[in-house]
Design a binder for these strands. Structure first.
Length: 578
RNA sequence: GCGCACGUAGCUCAGUUGGAUAGAGCAGCAGCCUUCUAAGCUGCGGGUCAGGGGUUCGACUCCCUUCGUGCGCGCCA
C-alpha cells in the first residue's frame, strides 16, 4: 500500500462519521484529498478535508477539523495537528510506516500497489507518422512521451496496448509511387519532378537501395535505351503503381528501426489499408446512417458533427463514392472499441486539434461513452522549434529539407533526447537547441540523475556490500532527527503515489522532475555530516547497514524511474578528460 | 473572422483534480577537492505568474474580457 492510500481511507472514514453526525450524507464517491505538506516540519501529509466538508456542513473548518481528529485514532501517529485555515497535518510514526510499506524491493512494492488500481484496458496510439517520408522531431517528442506514459500506465496496474496507425492508403500512397517513378526516370532522362510529388532527396536514396537489392521487376526496369523508346505516360502509371507498396514498406521499415533505436516499442502497427480492403470504412458510414447521423449534400455524405460541437458537418463519403480520411479514422476507432478497449488515448500532432471534435463526436454517435468507464482522450503534442546555434532550423516538408528523427538520434544521445522531451509538458511549444544540448551535455540534468545512481553503486563497491533489502520501519526510525536522511526517505515513500498520479493525468513530466529531486536529495544526504557509510562501517556497523539500505531504496527508485522513461541507469560513470 | 492551445526569473521550462512562503536547470556572482566519483556541494542576486475584472475561506490554477504568439478552419491526409 502507499502511505497516502492508508491515510485517505482513514480520513474518508472519519469524514463519513462526522458528516452523519452533522446530519448530512457525503457523496458516495467522496474521496478526501491527501496532499504533501509544503515542508516536513508540518508533518508528512496534510488534508484540506475539513475545508471541503465545511461547504457541505456549513460549519467552521477548524471546528470540523477538531471533529475529524476526534474520529481518528490519533495515538497511532507521531503527531496530528490543525494548521492554518483548517488543514490537518499528519506526522506518521515508524510503526505505521513499517505496517504499510512492508516490501523489501521497490518492484514488489509497486506490484502490491497495483492492487489499488482498478486496471483499465487501455489502447494508446502515438507517433503514427505517415509512411511517406522520414519522421520529424515532433514524432520523436511523441515517441518519448507516449512510450514513457504507457510504461507508467503498466507500472500503475493498467493493461496497455501500444499501437501505431499506418496511413498506407489513398492519395498520398499514389503520390509516393509517382515520386519513385519520376525519380527512377530521372536517372535516364531529363524530366522535372512534378510539384505534387514528394520533393525530398530521401526518395532517391530509397530507390537506390531498391535497385541495389535487385527489387525492381523486369517490366519496370529501365536502361538508357528503354527509357528513350518507352511510352512514357503508360510507364509512369505502371511504375507508380508498382513502387507505391514497395516505397511504403521501405519507409515504414526505417521508421520502425528508428523507433527501436529510440527504445520506443509498439505492440502493433495497424494498417489503414486493411480497413478499406475489408469494406469496413464504407461499412461504418452505413452504421452512422442507421443511427441518423449522416446527411446528404451535393451528392456527398456528411457526418453531422455539429451535433457534437464541431464548426460544420464533415464529408465522410465524397460525391464519387470514395471515403474521406475522416471516415477511415472513424472506422479505425470503432475497431478499437470493438476490440474491447475502455480507455482510448491518442497523441496527435499540433495541426490536428481541429480534428478532435469530429472524431470524438463520431465515437459518441456510435454509442461509445454511454457505459461507465469509457473514455476517449486526445493529447496534442505541440510543435518543436529546432534551433542550431540559437538560430531556427527551417523545417519544410515540401522542400524536403527537414530535420529528421534519425538526424536527432545520430546527433544527440538517446538518454538526453528522451529526458529532454519528457521533461516538458506536451501542450507547450518547445525550443530544442541542438548546439546547447551537445555543449551542455556534461551539465545536462539527465547526467545528474544517472550520476547519483552511479554514486550509490560506488558506495556499494567501496563498502564491499551488495545491495540488501530494506526495512521501512527501521529506516523511519534511523532517519528521525536527521534532516537530509528524513527528506530523502519520505520523498522516496512517494514514488508509487507519483506513478498513480501520472497514470491518472498523463503528466509524464512529473517523473523526470521527481527523479531529479531524488538525485538532489540523495546527493545532499551523501555530503551530509555523519552520513559517510565507509567510515560508519567501523564505528557503528548497524547504523551503516541502515544507511546502506536507504541507498538501496534510492537506487531502486532511480533505476525503476529511469527504466520507465527508457533511459539507461549506468552503475559506473567516468568523466571524459577534455 | 471563427475555433483550439499557449503566455510564470535574462533564457528553457516545472508548479500535484483550486491549498500553507511561486520552484528547477542554464546564465551571473562568492566560496569549497589530504573525502564512499568535483558530472559534485554551500551561499547570493533575480518575479506586477501578459493586463484588467469576477467566482470563494483560499486563484499561477476556474469563468469573462483585452493584448500577444502558434496552430486549425479542403469532397487533403
Amino acid at each position: 500500500m502507499t502511505l497516502r492510500t492508508f491515510l485517505r481511507s482513514m480520513v474518508a472514514a472519519a469524514a463519513g462519521q462526522v458528516a452523519r453526525a452533522g446530519g448530512s450524507d457525503l457523496p458516495a464517491d467522496f474521496q478526501p484529498r491527501i496532499d504533501y505538506t509544503p515542508d516536513l516540519k508540518f508533518g508528512h501529509y496534510a488534508t484540506p478535508a475539513a475545508m471541503e466538508l465545511a461547504k457541505v456542513l456549513k460549519q467552521n473548518p477548524r471546528a470540523i477539523a477538531e471533529k475529524l481528529i476526534a474520529a481518528i485514532d490519533v495515538s497511532a501517529f507521531e503527531k496530528v495537528e490543525i494548521a492554518g485555515a483548517g488543514f490537518i497535518n499528519f506526522t506518521l510514526n515508524p510503526a505505521q510506516i513499517a505496517a504499510t510499506v512492508t516490501f523489501d524491493s521497490v518492484g514488489k512494492w509497486l506490484e502490491n500497489c497495483r492492487k489499488e488500481t482498478a486496471g483499465e484496458k487501455v489502447i494508446f496510439e502515438y507517433v503514427s507518422a505517415n509512411p511517406t517520408g522520414p519522421m520529424n522531431i515532433v514524432s520523436a517528442r511523441a515517441a518519448s512521451v507516449g512510450d514513457s506514459i504507457t510504461r507508467v500506465l503498466r507500472a500503475a496496474g493498467h493493461s496497455v496496448h501500444r499501437e501505431y496507425y499506418v496511413n498506407d492508403y489513398g492519395n498520398q500512397v499514389e503520390k509516393l509511387g509517382l515520386s519513385f517513378a519520376y525519380r527512377y526516370l530521372q536517372k535516364f532522362t531529363a524530366i522535372d519532378l512534378p510539384e505534387d510529388c514528394y520533393q525530398g532527396e530521401y526518395i532517391v536514396l530509397y530507390l537506390d537501395r531498391l535497385i541495389a537489392d535487385g527489387k525492381i521487376s523486369t517490366e519496370i526496369t529501365l536502361d538508357a535505351g528503354k527509357a528513350a523508346s518507352l511510352n512514357r505516360d503508360q510507364w509512369i502509371a505502371d511504375a507508380a503503381k508498382y513502387f507505391a507498396p514497395l516505397g511504403i514498406r521501405s519507409i515504414l521499415h526505417d521508421q520502425q528501426t528508428d523507433l527501436k533505436n529510440f527504445r520506443t516499442e509498439f505492440d502493433a502497427f495497424f494498417s489503414e489499408a486493411t480497413l478499406h480492403e475489408q469494406g469496413r470504412v464504407l461499412g461504418i458510414a452505413e452504421e452512422l446512417k442507421r443511427r441518423g447521423k449522416l446527411r446528404s449534400e451535393d451528392g456527398a455524405q456528411l457526418f453531422v458533427s455539429t451535433e457534437y460541437g464541431d464548426d460544420k458537418d464533415r464529408v465522410v463519403v465524397r460525391s464519387d463514392g470514395r471515403p474521406t480520411y475522416l471516415l477511415a479514422d472513424i472506422a479505425y476507432h470503432a475497431d478499437k472499441v470493438a476490440r474491447g478497449f475502455q480507455t482510448i488515448i491518442d497523441i496527435w500532432g499540433p495541426d490536428h486539434h481541429g480534428y478532435i471534435a469530429r472524431l470524438s463526436g463520431a465515437l459518441k454517435a456510435l454509442g461509445f461513452g454511454e457505459h461507465a468507464g469509457e473514455s476517449f482522450k486526445v493529447i496534442i503534442a505541440q510543435q518543436v522549434n529546432l534551433l542550431e546555434n540559437g538560430q531556427p532550423v527551417v523545417m519544410s516538408k515540401r522542400l524536403g529539407k527537414f530535420q529528421t528523427m534519425r538526424d536527432l538520434i545520430e546527433k544527440i544521445p538517446v538518454d538526453v533526447c528522451r529526458y529532454f522531451f519528457v521533461t516538458r509538458g506536451l501542450s507547450t511549444h518547445l525550443d530544442f537547441d541542438l548546439t546547447l544540448a551537445l555543449d551542455q551535455s556534461k551539465k545536462n540534468p539527465v547526467y545528474y540523475v544517472q550520476y547519483a545512481n552511479a554514486r550509490i553503486h560506488s558506495i556499494f563497491r567501496e563498502c564491499g556490500q551488495p545491495p540488501q533489502g530494506f526495512a521501512t520501519g527501521e529506516l523511519a526510525t534511523a532517519v528521525a532527527g536527521h534532516a537530509e536522511r528524513a527528506a530523502l526517505f519520505y520523498w522516496l515513500m512517494r514514488f508509487p503515489e507519483l506513478l498513480q498520479d501520472i497514470a491518472r493525468n498523463y503528466e509524464i513530466q512529473r517523473l523526470p522532475e521527481y527523479l531529479y529531486q531524488t538525485a538532489t536529495l540523495f546527493t545532499s544526504f551523501y555530503h551530509g555530516k555523519g552520513n559517510r557509510i565507509k567510515d560508519l562501517l567501523q564505528e557503528n556497523p548497524s547504523h551503516a547497514q541502515v544507511l546502506l539500505s536507504l541507498c538501496n531504496l534510492t537506487t531502486q527508485v532511480l533505476e525503476t524511474g529511469l527504466e520507465l522513461l527508457g533511459i539507461s541507469a549506468p552503475r559506473e560513470m567516468h568523466r571524459d578528460e577534455d
